[in-house]
Design a protein around this nucleic acid. Structure first.
Length: 593
RNA sequence: GCUUUUGUAGUUCAAUGGAUAGAAUGUCAGAUUCCGGUUCUGAUGAUGGGGGUUCGAAUCCCUUCAAAAGCACCA
C-alpha cells in the first residue's frame, strides 16, 4: 500500500472516530507540499471541516495527531491555515527508491484488458502532407503509444480519403497537361507530383473563371460553368460508374501518392495497423440510415431526403442521406464507425482530427448515441488547433504552406550544422552521424509540437525548437546523453541495488519523489489523451536532474562506495525513464551526442 | 448574425476549484564546471475588462472585448 493510500485511509478512520461521521476517500485532496513549507505531503483540510464542525486549523491538528499515531511513516506534521503538511520518514523514501523504483517492473506495462482505436493522419490523396498534418500524425502516434504504455491494446488506423472531386482535379490536370510525367521521369516524389497537378488545375480553372467573368458571367456562374470543373465532375461520375480508363488512371496516381506518403510516414516514425479507404467506405452507412428510420430517430422529407432533428440538443437539423439516395460525409462516417467497431470490438475509439470539424463529430457521436449504439459512449474526438508560423498563417493559396518533407529535411540539416560546429562526435561513423542528426532534428520537431496542449493553437518556431537549452527536445536528449556518459565513466554496475543507511539531500529526495510519479503521470496523460503533460513531466525530470547533478559533490570522485552507488542509481533511473518516456512521444534519445 | 474554442510575464508554454500563479526565453548580477555545446542561484515581469458562485477562482456561471474556426444535399 502506498503512502497516499495509507494517509487517506487514516483520515477516513479519523473522521469516523473523532467526529462520528463518514467521509469518502474521493472527497479528500492530497498534494505535494510546496517547497517553502516543511514536509512532503499535504492534506487540504477544508473538505473535512464540514464534518468536524471546527475551524480548519483545529481540524488539521486533530487529523495531524491521529495520522502521527496511526501511520508509521509519518514523523512530523505542521499546520498552515487549512493545510496539514506531513513529513514522511527518510526510511520510507529510501525504501521506495531501492525496492520499488529500481525494480525492473517499476515502469513496466500492466495490461488492463481494454481495447482502444486511434484513427489519425487520414490524408487526402491529392497533395503532399504539410505542417498541419505533421501535428496530426505526431499527436495520433503519441496518444496511441501513451495508451499502450497505460496498458491498453491499441489499434492505429488511417482512413485515407482517396476518392472524390479533389483527386479527379489532379487526375484531369495530369491528363491534360502532364505529358505522361511520372515520379521516375521527373525525379519527384509521387505525392509531390500529384500535388503539382492539383495546383495546375487550380491555376487553369481560375483562368477560365476570369475569362467567363470577362464575358459577362457572374463569378458564381463562372465557377459552375468553367469547362474544367465540368470535366472534373464528369470524371467523378465516370469513376463512380467504374469506367476502366478513369479507374486505371486513379489507381496509378494514387499508387504514386502512397509511395510518397510511405516515405514521409517512415521519416516521421509513425505507423498503422490498418488502412481504411474511403473508396471502400463511401457507400456505407445506408443501412444505418434505414435502421434510424425504423427506430424513428431519422425522418424522411417529401423529396425523399433523410434528416435528423437535433434542435432539442441545441444543434440543427442535419441531412444524413440525399434525396437521390446517395451518401453524404456523415452517412459514410456512420457506416465506417460501425465497421470499425465490427472489425475490432474496442471499448474506446479516438479520432484525431483538426478542430474545424468539432461540429461534425459532435453531430456524429450524438446520432450514434441516439441510435442506441452501445459503443457510442466510447467515441472521442481528439481535436487539435491549427499550426501557425512566426511568419504568419499558413495559406495554401498564398504558397505559405510548409511542406512536411521539406520541413523534416531542414530540421535534420539544422541538427547536422549545430552538431558539426561543436565537433564532439568526430569518431562516429557516417551512419552513426546521420542517425544522430536525424534523431536530434526529429526530436526537436516532435517535442516542440507535442509539448503544447492539443486543443490550443500552436506557434511553431523551428529555430527555437532545436535549441539545446530551454524547454526543448534536444535539451532532454542532451541531459540523457550526459548521464550515459557519466555512467560509463563511473563504470556503473546496475546489479548493486540496495543501498541503505543514507542521508538524502533535499534535491535527492525531490528527485526520488519526482521519479516515483512516473506511472501515475503516464496514466494521467493517457486518460486525458495528452502527450503534452507527459512532455512537460519529462522536462521537469531533466531540469531537476541538472540541479541535483550540480548540487551534489562530484559523483565519480565520491569515495564512499555506498553513496556513490546510490547516486549513480538515481542517475541510471533518470536516464531510463527519460528514454522510455521520450520514446512514447516518438523521440529517440541518443547515447551520445 | 448564430455556435464553438482560445485569451496568463515583452515572447513561447504550465498550473486535478486550494497556500505567495510555475517554467522557458529575454535582460541584469553572481556561483559552479565530474566529459559537455554547459549547468546552477538570484533579480525582473502576467491571469483581456466587469460582475457572480465558493471558506477558497486562471479554472465554474453571466456579461463584455479580442483572436481563430464552424454554420453546404463538400469532405
Amino acid at each position: 500500500m502506498n503512502i497516499d493510500k495509507k494517509i487517506t485511509t487514516a483520515v477516513v478512520n479519523a473522521v469516523k472516530e473523532l467526529y462520528q461521521q463518514e467521509i469518502f476517500e474521493n472527497q479528500l485532496n492530497l498534494q505535494e507540499t510546496r517547497p517553502e513549507f516543511e514536509g512532503q505531503i499535504t492534506l487540504v483540510v477544508f473538505p473535512v471541516v464540514r464534518f468536524s464542525k471546527k475551524t480548519p486549523e483545529d481540524t488539521a491538528k486533530d487529523l495531524g495527531e491521529y495520522i502521527l499515531k496511526n501511520v508509521q511513516e509519518v514523523t512530523k506534521y505542521n499546520v498552515v491555515k487549512g493545510f496539514l503538511n506531513l513529513s514522511i520518514s527518510e526510511t520510507y523514501w529510501l525504501n521506495l527508491f531501492n525496492v520499488e523504483l529500481l525494480n525492473s517492473n517499476f515502469a513496466a506495462v500492466k495490461p488492463n484488458g481494454k481495447k482502444v482505436m486511434v484513427e489519425y493522419s487520414s490524408p487526402n490523396t491529392n497533395k503532399p502532407l504539410h505542417l498541419g498534418h505533421v501535428r496530426n500524425n505526431l499527436l495520433g502516434y503519441a496518444v496511441a503509444e501513451l495508451l499502450k504504455a497505460d496498458g491498453f491494446e491499441v489499434f492505429k488506423v488511417n482512413l485515407v480519403n482517396d476518392r472524390g472531386i479533389h483527386i479527379c482535379k489532379s487526375m484531369l490536370a495530369w491528363q491534360l497537361y502532364g505529358n505522361n510525367e511520372t515520379p521516375q521521369s521527373t525525379g519527384l516524389k509521387g505525392d509531390h507530383l500529384v500535388g503539382k497537378y492539383y495546383v495546375i488545375f487550380d491555376k487553369e480553372y481560375k483562368k477560365e473563371i476570369e475569362t467567363l467573368v470577362a464575358q459577362g458571367q457572374s463569378e458564381e456562374e463562372a465557377k459552375k460553368n468553367a469547362p474544367l470543373i465540368k470535366q472534373a465532375q464528369q470524371m467523378l461520375l465516370q469513376w463512380e460508374e467504374g469506367n476502366a480508363e478513369v479507374i486505371s488512371l486513379w489507381q496509378k496516381m494514387n499508387a504514386w501518392v502512397y509511395e510518397g506518403f510511405g516515405v514521409t510516414y517512415k521519416k516521421l516514425g509513425v505507423d498503422f495497423d490498418k488502412y481504411y479507404y474511403e473508396s471502400n467506405t463511401y457507400l456505407l452507412g445506408k443501412d444505418i440510415v434505414e435502421e434510424g428510420l425504423a427506430k424513428g430517430v431519422f425522418f424522411k422529407k417529401e423529396d425523399g431526403s433523410v434528416w435528423i432533428d437535433l434542435t432539442e440538443d441545441g444543434l440543427d437539423q442535419k441531412l444524413v442521406l440525399r434525396a437521390d439516395g446517395t451518401s453524404v460525409y456523415i452517412t459514410q462516417d456512420l457506416g465506417t464507425a460501425q465497421m470499425k467497431f465490427d472489425d475490432f470490438g474496442m471499448e474506446q475509439s479516438i479520432y484525431v482530427v483538426g478542430n474545424e470539424q468539432d461540429y461534425h463529430f459532435k453531430v456524429l457521436f450524438l446520432i450514434l448515441n441516439k441510435l442506441g449504439k452501445s459503443w457510442a459512449d466510447g467515441l472521442h474526438h481528439l481535436s487539435y488547433g491549427m499550426v501557425d508560423l512566426p511568419s504568419g498563417k499558413m495559406k495554401s493559396r498564398e504558397g505559405t504552406v510548409v511542406d512536411a518533407d521539406d520541413l523534416i529535411d531542414e530540421m535534420i540539416a539544422s541538427a547536422k550544422q549545430k552538431t558539426e560546429e561543436l565537433g564532439k562526435i568526430t569518431d562516429f561513423s557516417e551512419q552513426e552521424k546521420n542517425d544522430l542528426y536525424y534523431n536530434i532534428g526529429l526530436g526537436a520537431l516532435k517535442y516542440f509540437l507535442l509539448k503544447v496542449e492539443p486543443k490550443k493553437r500552436l506557434l511553431f518556431d523551428p529555430n527555437e525548437s532545436i535549441d539545446f537549452q530551454g524547454h526543448t527536445g534536444p535539451f532532454i536528449q542532451y541531459t540523457h546523453a550526459r548521464i550515459k556518459s557519466l555512467l560509463s565513466k563511473a563504470n556503473y554496475q546496475s546489479d548493486v541495488k540496495s543501498v541503505d543507511g543514507i542521508v538524502l539531500s533535499e534535491t535527492e529526495l525531490a528527485m526520488i519523489m519526482l521519479l516515483a510519479k512516473y506511472p501515475s503521470e503516464i496514466s494521467a496523460a493517457a486518460k486525458s489523451h495528452s502527450p503534452a503533460s507527459l512532455a512537460n513531466y519529462l522536462y521537469e525530470i531533466a531540469k531537476m536532474f541538472n540541479k541535483f547533478y550540480h548540487e551534489v559533490p562530484p559523483i565519480v570522485k565520491e569515495e564512499d562506495e555506498k553513496i556513490k552507488q546510490h547516486r549513480l542509481n538515481i542517475c541510471k533511473l533518470t536516464a531510463d525513464l527519460l528514454k522510455k518516456g521520450m520514446l512514447i512521444l516518438g523521440i529517440v534519445v541518443p547515447e551520445r551526442m
